[in-house]
Design a protein around this nucleic acid. Sequence first.
DNA 1: CTGAAAGCGCTTACAG
DNA 2: CTGAAAGCGCTTACAG
Lengths: 335, 335
Amino acid sequence: MTSIKDVAREVALSTATVSRALRGLRGVSDENRTKITEAAQRLGYVPSPSAVGLASGHTHTVAVIVPHVARWFFGEVVQGAEEVLRAAGYDLLLYNLAGEPAARHRVFQTDLLSKRVDAVLVLGLRPSLPEQSRLAELGRPVAIVGAVANGLYSVSIDDERAARLATCHLVDLGHRRIGYVGGSLDTLDFIAPSARLAGYRAVLRERGIRHYRDLEDVGDFSVTGGRDAALRLLTRSDRPTAIFAASDEMAIGVLRGARELGLGVPEDLSVVGIDDHELAAFFDLTTVAQPVREQGRRGAERVLAELTGVRPPDSEVLPVELIVRTSTASPRDEG
Amino acid sequence: MTSIKDVAREVALSTATVSRALRGLRGVSDENRTKITEAAQRLGYVPSPSAVGLASGHTHTVAVIVPHVARWFFGEVVQGAEEVLRAAGYDLLLYNLAGEPAARHRVFQTDLLSKRVDAVLVLGLRPSLPEQSRLAELGRPVAIVGAVANGLYSVSIDDERAARLATCHLVDLGHRRIGYVGGSLDTLDFIAPSARLAGYRAVLRERGIRHYRDLEDVGDFSVTGGRDAALRLLTRSDRPTAIFAASDEMAIGVLRGARELGLGVPEDLSVVGIDDHELAAFFDLTTVAQPVREQGRRGAERVLAELTGVRPPDSEVLPVELIVRTSTASPRDEG
DNA sequence: CTGAAAGCGCTTACAG
DNA sequence: CTGAAAGCGCTTACAG
């Protein structure tokens, strides 16, 4: 493994000068800079990240904390963030919270992160209050992506607005019994679910539609979860004429559940989701589109800006858009 | 940031002893070990990864090289690998090759990786010969997951066999004009595509079925790609009565394409995929199931075994299984 | 069982 | 513009 000393020896200069030249710092003669660059190239020299980290305090690594890598939304966000980080020469350390519940606690250990990374990206979950102060103690740039947390930069959509768009669409079509399939209701970690539920409820209230707690169910943000929720909701005597699912994957599950029960979409049931997942068009699913990969990019850009001393932007709210396809229609009864 | 010196001072012992105690090395009195552990805990001491890396040469980090994080298969594999690595106290450095073509070249730079990680997991792609020698030069454990490469440990399925199962199933049903939708044919980086194509061709040959080059198309392993390929294949005058797609995502795209053309499945077209993707059951898609997350786990376990000096296993081939659903049936004509 | 000292490979003031 | 030296925070022989 060739070290900076090898390069220094090769060009008969000090390691200090080699270090400066290779990092593009000013204060090295053009002649020497060229000589050094060429020698480094020739010897295949690559600085040791550990040594750089120890000496400079910068690891050129960003932690990305994700609730579940294998979910579509997070895969896309990670992809977006990775593009930006890689282009800037930063490595991406992935912390997946799925599975082991203790993972979350461990990951947010301040010291652990601060000694290991230059910045942190938190995807799709709202840090708890203690976690927020931990993140603040980090003293490193932090970005929340796909969720919001007061005091911390975040890039996300307006989840309540997205839910309102979806619900309004159903109400406008004439639906009055509208089911909701969301995340688990007891964990408020994920901001999106609760904001989406809030948007749904708000529209019902504002439009003077009676709200039934029983029509709210949990789909766990998975296709299977959505299907199971649909089976529960649609076998009720007073089954809803429409279901708003807080994600397209759950909405797809709802479609499946409806089909299993022999219910036609949209004749017997209207379904609307959120995301504009790759498969939404496939299913002719009406949905509220959000820019997912872009959120990952913005989050990464934000921490990089802070890292390089550029004035970072304020929290950003990206636009959403209702995309009407054929999974929604007026309910039969009210024609 | 509390350092090992702080802990040493706190307990009035040397940093050497603290280091040994905290790493669980033998040769520390029980009394001191307890005292040290408690002090470290109390002070919230976490060793600096950079310092540990520099001093010991071990980074406790594993590189995971993935062609495309946002694809289902890779998300699952990463998830599996992450579970195992995390449990062993290793961090996961994600290298995504999607997008920028230069990424691949850069990532395989030996020095870069060897100074940064203790081991490497290569997912879903077969390293080129130069890349293989680079990986060998690494002098670190390497595992190929979801592909094979001579000389390197790999965990995968038998792709040719999977393709044979799928194709035989169609032939057994009576199909003679069987289309194939795979990855791009010119890049042989991904072993799976070519092995799957080979399996498809072999079965046709063995069963004395005329093989039309024109019935082989490219679906790019995406839903959209599968759909586009289906539109091309199914608008031919001599359209196939069945299509074998080399992944479920492409198969789902094929279903979509068929629907757009007004073709019924399985009456007008039989479709079979590979994976048993979460959505395969949803689509009643006949497919060849493979254990995906498990491949990620095995790969991670393998490099960990090598790292800890345990005798590592030989390359592993995990079983596949044909799952017949209702997307396949005998062709109408010969019905 | 414990410690002093060297060393891992860089970067960073400080001089010049 | 360049270099000598200290230091980053650990681990690792080497002594004892």
